[in-house]
Design a binder for these strands. Structure first.
Lengths: 337, 337
DNA sequence: TTGTAGGCGTTATCAT
DNA sequence: ATGATAACGCCTACAA
């Protein structure tokens, strides 16, 4: 139950002044080897550890990065592992706050971290977020902020993201290549850039191939597996039902798969399915499900590296935009040639 | 780029003393309505937010809970969501550090958080951890610490965990009920209590049924899916191969499933399979895989509640041990009657 | 009702 | 080479 020792304690017991002890700790140049020895010895004995709060208060930096994440699912936690790895290396502690896709929680979390707890932010917004004032406040405070994965034009900040348009394009091209004619898309919430960009890729592919675009085939719903399930049921109930479905996440692909199986349709013959994220389980399902793979770990690392750079550079890096490329992993669910 | 306003700034601009402003903020009783109004107004205008560092330094508490987690997979992140929910409610911020199952990282993380950053810890140890000095240090400092999920007798701390023995028992009983005779078990690292306790449940069931115990059927390997895959290959290559496999995690069950399918064996006829954790995908696989379900979210909430209690109680709660019950979810992979 | 002064643990500046 | 002092932002006796 003993209180942690402070330099004051050490100074007292050694009959030295506080500043001398402080110097010894930070092995400053102007100090005699003997006193330094003595101080180090005693500090060892007392298990002295500098008080980070006091330090931070003085130097006005906490060496902590706040990470705002909408959830902790497979993709995000992989990205966070990447962030963590780089941050740790650079001497930063990472503080992860997950908003559970709730706008309110996101505001709360940023607010708390902003109360001088962190030196800056690495942010991915919740799917509910349509207003960005709480994040702009970060910038107004002059704190560095990097946006990752879920990027939005409404936020003028350096960012790292996937080429989502390309992802949507790749998936759609592949489905067309496999002879699918009527490709539906389960998109995410309509205000989420990530989702819309993937839709754009989908549209680009269709246009390029001269395939008529049917708006009834693009369904916006929650990322949730259940919503995808119901949405797919509705899709399959349409008079001219789609013969392929491209979902914006693997979770949604799972929901779609369930509905497809229940309906008694078979993949890839009756219907093709392509997901997004390439979660490890996708290859284990029957049929194994195709998916657009994104380099999540690398993306996290890139975000952290960018953050460190922004931190140490004083230049305006708001326009920096790093874009990683997706690649399509073709599996049984969409391979019928 | 403006520095955040301090009470000093406000005091200056209002011609008041710092303490008066401070009082106004915390709506202390002895203050005139007018000055209070004025202060609140200006503080609003300047976007004043109290500096948590200064506050913490003074009051010697940070209102932050450090969570040490071995990873951020499905189970852990669900638990953390539970922790988060309760902690937030109680006015705490949660700081999650994930050790990536590395002992070194775990030490590093606890060390950093211990530097006066958190008021206490909610801990689940890495699978590598065999020495617990870094965690005992937390207690030596008089900080509250609750252990969750991965509990160990080497740590005398209040804890919340699953009844793992029961989980192992349930799964094994079920397999025996289904007529499986030779049940193998893929256990986790040998030093991990969670793993060993599940093995104990497995053994209890076998003994009760009078089934001979074959040590070659209990394999300790990493949690990793790949290890499980190889381990299963070896199991299936044994002269008298097992006719059922019980794995300590769903990830391992996936690895086992791959090996089983590759070998051309069918579930549940040739071989039965039961996993642990009941991750959502298990029900989507073909065949759907049985699994021992654990109330992860509830467990996280319970851990946080216990923490708050320990925090506010001064009594010695080291002996408190909360145990949640698992339940078996039977699916195709093990249901052959 | 308001102000003064000291302290939380540390570092930086200026003396000595 | 060492010490005294002010400061970081806030709170809290105590004094006025």
């Amino acid at each position: 139950m003993q209180k942690p020792a402070t330099i004051k304690d050490i100074a007292l017991r050694l009959g030295l002044s506080i500043s001398t002890v402080s110097r010894a700790m930070r092995n400053a140049p102007d100090i005699s080897p003997e006193t330094k020895q003595a101080v180090l010895l005693l500090s060892e004995e007392l298990h002295y550890q500098p008080n980070r709060l006091a330090l931070s208060l003085r130097q006005k930096q906490t060496h902590t990065i706040g990470v705002i994440a909408p959830n902790l699912d497979y993709v995000l936690s992989t990205m966070i592992r990447g962030i963590d790895e780089v941050a740790l290396e650079a001497g930063y502690t990472v503080m992860v706050c997950q908003s559970n896709e709730s706008f309110g929680r996101e505001i709360l979390n940023t607010g708390r971290l902003l109360d001088s707890l962190v030196d800056g932010f690495i942010v991915s917004v919740s799917s509910e977020t349509k207003i960005f004032d709480h994040l702009k406040k970060i910038q107004a405070r002059g704190l560095p902020m990097v946006v990752f994965d879920r990027v939005t034009p409404q936020l003028s900040a350096p960012s790292v993201r996937l080429d989502n348009e390309e992802g949507g394009y790749l998936a759609t091209e592949h489905l067309l290549d496999q002879g699918y004619k009527r490709i539906a898309m389960l998109a995410g919430p309509a205000n989420l850039g990530v989702s819309n960009t993937r839709v754009e890729g989908y549209l680009r592919s269709l246009k390029r191939r001269g395939v008529a675009i049917d708006k009834k085939l693009v369904i916006h719903c929650d990322f949730n597996q259940d919503y995808a399930y119901y949405a797919t049921q509705e899709l399959l109930a349409q008079r001219r039902r789609p013969d392929a479905i491209f979902t914006i996440s693997d979770r949604m692909a799972l929901g779609a798969m369930l509905a497809i199986k229940e309906k008694g349709l078979s993949m890839p013959q009756d219907i093709g399915l392509v997901g997004f994220n390439n979660e490890p389980v996708m290859r284990l399902l029957t049929p194994a499900i195709s998916s657009v793979d994104m380099p999540s770990f690398e993306l996290g690392k890139a975000a952290a590296k960018l953050f460190i750079e922004v931190m140490h550079n004083n230049e305006d890096m708001r326009m920096v935009e790093e874009v990683l490329k997706p690649r399509l992993i073709v599996r049984e669910s969409s391979k019928r040639l």
